[in-house]
């Protein structure tokens, strides 16, 4: 495909209470095959999607949180988390799953996919996008 667009997936809802988080992730996985410039943003309750230690066994529904760790293998490695949303929920980066990717431009060094950014930085990132998908 000749024209690469900047695709941003915005995640603002908590997991499990509604299906939006999981079905959004399904779009990201399919979208990865289209070789566009993909970023994910997590803000508001969306930051809860990335929290460590999710266990749905007692609910009897699918725990999809391991899928986030696989995003690096799909070349989805720009994952922006808004600092203000984290702080408002009493969370820090340490509460989130350590998402990694291997940087092919840096001898496949393992790097962190999650970047905690301020609202001002997030605003700038949003400005640069071509297509915004919201769930």
């Amino acid at each position: 495909m000749s024209d690469v667009k900047k695709f941003m997936y915005i995640n603002r809802k908590a997991p499990y209470g509604t299906i939006y988080a999981w079905e959004a992730l399904e779009v990201v996985l399919i979208g990865a095959a289209f070789e566009q410039d993909v970023s994910l943003a997590f803000m508001d309750d969306g930051v809860f999607q990335l929290v460590k230690g999710q266990d749905t066994t007692e609910l009897g529904i699918k725990n999809f949180s391991p899928t986030y760790s696989a995003l690096g293998d799909y070349d989805v490695n720009k994952i922006y988390v808004e600092k203000e949303s984290l702080e408002a929920r009493g969370l820090t980066l340490d509460d989130l799953m350590p998402l990694k990717y291997e940087d092919e431009d840096d001898d496949w060094a393992e790097k962190d996919s999650i970047r905690v950014v301020t609202a001002a930085e997030m605003a700038e990132i949003l400005e640069q996008q071509d297509v915004v998908l919201s769930f």
Binding site: D44, S85, A123
Partner: peptide, 12 residues
Amino acid sequence: RPSLQTCLRLAG
């Protein structure tokens, strides 16, 4: 929901 507040915080 805080959609408006978040939008206004992040709108350029």
